[in-house]
Design a protein around this nucleic acid. Structure first.
Lengths: 185, 185
DNA sequence: CAATAATCATCAGTATACTTCCTTTTATTG
DNA sequence: CAATAAAAGGAAGTATACTGATGATTATTG
């Protein structure tokens, strides 16, 4: 079986994070595997973990995290166009169209051409969509809580604050830039 | 009057927030928007930011973060089978096969059937693959650094420690569970 | 040793998430 | 006001990331 030998030195060496990694086996792994020193890798993994938790809690609803995010926005902002939705949700506009079409196919969302601007397609929840958002909320919420369950209050708050700070600092990157407009008013 | 109309009044540049006093505009946004209270949402966004930074730094190489991660593992562990790679990289085995086939198509990776166990397909870097890993490393490293650039040493270390702690606690979720035995021992 | 179980890979299918190119509609301007 | 630019959406294509089913090979066991 293949065994790791001298692994490439990773240029992204930050100082060893000793605060919270009690498992010595894992600690050793982190030292030897270059991937575990790359924040991008860690974030990708955590993203996957969230998906897994979400599906575990929300099993039976057949709704993905992104779909639920979109439904949430529509719940507070009916008749939104696709580009506004994309900016609010932080995904690409073509992706919004894809997600909307799946939701529409299931009768959770309606789409209409705007009469004021015939370029726009406006989306809103159906009655069924509203019901599903409400029914699913507790399960979604549990998934969110479980992700950070292992942290104490202080560490959890610090983690969330850092996440938000990083997003703010890097807002300009990617197509899915945050729109600091007036959703939610 | 559609909400969407008034939403697209962005263009507000975020000013850099200090640690003590975050951007009040953003704070307000977080209060208003339910999504910004969901850690899963924030992590998804940060994941996207990392991708954007990665592509900005690594433009011209035509390699994605996941592809580079796989190349990194192969660099230290030639002739690995796909399931071992999947566990080391934290992605699904079917996905590993997809990524490998793209890398093989570009001549960066070779695949052979194991003679010992004819079920296994073993992958290794070609000379070209090795060269690319080395050539790309500085750019990849810059992308990783830039993601956390805005943080001070202390906050960065705390953030990484929490990330690792969360991954450790939730390792069991999803197909892509970390294998703590295979590599790095 | 044959039947069964476990393992590894592959295939088909779904859902994000993005790029590039294109059409339609609206806004701008010479 | 006609020519042009900008904006919204759509279509096609690529790359992750997963589920479920299938087939081939190896390991186990009755």
């Amino acid at each position: 079986m293949s065994v790791a030998k001298s692994v490439r030195t990773d240029g992204t060496q930050n100082k060893k994070a000793t605060a919270a990694a009690p498992n010595p086996e894992l600690q050793q792994l982190i030292e030897r595997l270059p991937l575990w020193k790359r924040p991008g890798y860690l974030i990708r993994r955590l993203h996957q973990v969230h998906y897994a938790l979400f599906f575990e809690e929300c099993e039976g609803f057949g709704i993905t995290p992104v779909q639920y995010g979109l439904l949430t926005i529509l719940s507070g902002n009916p008749d939104s166009d696709q580009i506004s939705l994309a900016q609010a949700l932080g995904i690409d506009r073509t992706n919004v169209a894809d997600v909307l079409s799946r939701l529409a196919q299931r009768g959770l969302v309606e789409r209409t051409r705007s009469t004021e601007d015939k370029r726009m397609v406006l989306a809103r929840l159906t009655g069924e969509g509203e019901k599903l958002v409400a029914a699913m909320h507790p399960a979604m919420s549990r998934a969110q809580d479980r992700l950070l369950d292992t942290l104490g209050d202080k560490e959890r708050d610090a983690f969330l604050a850092t996440l938000i700070r990083l997003l703010e600092a890097n807002n300009k990157y990617g197509r899915a830039a945050l729109a600091t407009g007036k959703f939610g008013e």
